[in-house]
Nucleic acid binder design. Structure first.
Lengths: 236, 236
DNA sequence: GCATATATTGCTGTATACAATTCTGAATAT
DNA sequence: ATATTCAGAATTGTATACAGCAATATATGC
């Protein structure tokens, strides 16, 4: 969320990126205490930079910390997921409202082009991860149209924290709704939102966005359950 | 934002709280590099816990960090303030919408009672700081009614980051609008919002909230300028 | 056999040391 | 006068050491 590409390879940043991934992918099991010595030797850095990275992740909501006990990976209860999806709604809808008056036609067209380019591969791509990345990229581009760096920052953070659940969510979605996804037949939710924005129709855009996220949120609780079951019964 | 009362007095928490205050109050001048050794001796802790606290504050958006160069206090440009106020709108409005269906009458009444208790002293209290604390407390209580821990967390973070500007803002407000603040004459913005919530009128509540924050936001840019002038020309 | 007290072990919390990097400023060349 | 280079100083980045706390295992009394 804070750092993107670190060519210098500062130890803290390296560890931070890696840890965030581990936390997002539930490689660190929820509510399990993190052993600093073990982790530091695993990641090839000493405890000092490791702890600095851990502190960042606590501040960002990925981990928790109990004084004298150490760091823990944060558990994702259905309640928390719901909270995060609501926060996401708040942020994305606000951004969309601002974009109506702030985004230029050209900028909107650029996102449209991104959609044109990526959406066809929704059906061909098999790796759910790539699918998730495209989905996230779309939402990030959309929020960026608001020209509000803080909203971008917040969405980026939330995305990171619900990544694993969304991954499971998307997998489920694929299994269930693939047939109805014939191109041309019905516009994708993303397309509907973007079209409304291009038409400068604030109400329609926000309504579509709310519904889009709402639908995902409804599936999310189910996704959490599945995520947990996958956690403790590794797929064969 | 993360830690509230630390009786154990872990060094990093102590330093963290203190630093956050310093950053919020612009005791650390914007864009100025933070000297770790100097700070550590000033705060009476070694560099290790200091840097852990600094890293937390970077993740929370209070500071920035450049690899190999160190930590910097984040500058508050008018643009950034605007961003933060917009984020605040997003969060508080979303929370309010959820509260309409989630907050019990009793809970709303409790906030009402808080308002009854604190509002009269708006005119008597002279210390702007206390005023700000009451204002923040009200908004936090309001958001808490949404039962969404993430929204609470986000508002708490934003409040911390715009505290100094709001302080200046409130001071200005006092100077200008004190006469029109006769109790009974007109309902306070807070009261209007809460009444709408009590009546379960979502549209009215959200509208009032948007306007309330919007008005503050408009003053904010002005407040930033004043804040900066106060920064570099200490009041005599 | 159970509960309480006590030792043991492992881990966290912090300080300190040292290596690596960046900054400063003066001396030199253009 | 301006730009450049190159030590020296200052500051950051990381490793390591050790003190102190927490959890667990062991022993003791009942």
């Amino acid at each position: 969320m804070t750092s993107a590409g670190n060519k210098t390879g500062s130890s803290v940043d390296r560890v931070y990126d890696r840890l965030k991934r581990m936390a997002a992918d539930f490689e660190l099991k929820p509510d399990e205490r993190i052993n600093e010595s073990a982790l530091s030797s695993l990641l090839g850095a000493s405890r000092t930079p490791l702890r600095e990275a851990l502190n960042r992740l606590v501040a960002e909501g990925f981990l928790t910390f109990k004084n004298g006990r150490g760091f823990f990976c944060r558990s994702l209860s259905p309640g928390r997921i719901l909270d995060l999806y609501e926060a996401r709604q708040a942020i994305e809808c606000e951004a969309l409202q601002r974009s109506v008056s702030r985004a230029s036609d050209a900028e909107i067209q650029a996102v449209m082009a991104f959609l044109d380019e990526t959406e066809p591969s929704y059906n061909t791509i098999d790796v759910a991860m790539s699918l998730l990345e495209m989905d996230e990229a779309f939402h990030m581009k959309l929020v960026a149209l608001s020209k509000n760096a803080e909203l971008v920052r917040l969405l980026s953070n939330i995305n990171g924290r619900i990544r694993y659940v969304r991954l499971v969510d998307l997998k489920m979605l694929r299994g269930k709704t693939l047939p109805s996804r014939n191109k041309g037949a019905k516009l994708s939710a993303h397309r509907v939102i973007l079209n409304a924005l291009a038409a400068r129709d604030e109400v329609a855009a926000v309504t579509a966005m709310r519904e889009h996220i709402e639908r995902r949120r409804e599936e999310a609780t189910e996704a959490v359950r599945i995520a947990y079951s996958q956690l403790y019964v590794p797929a064969d």
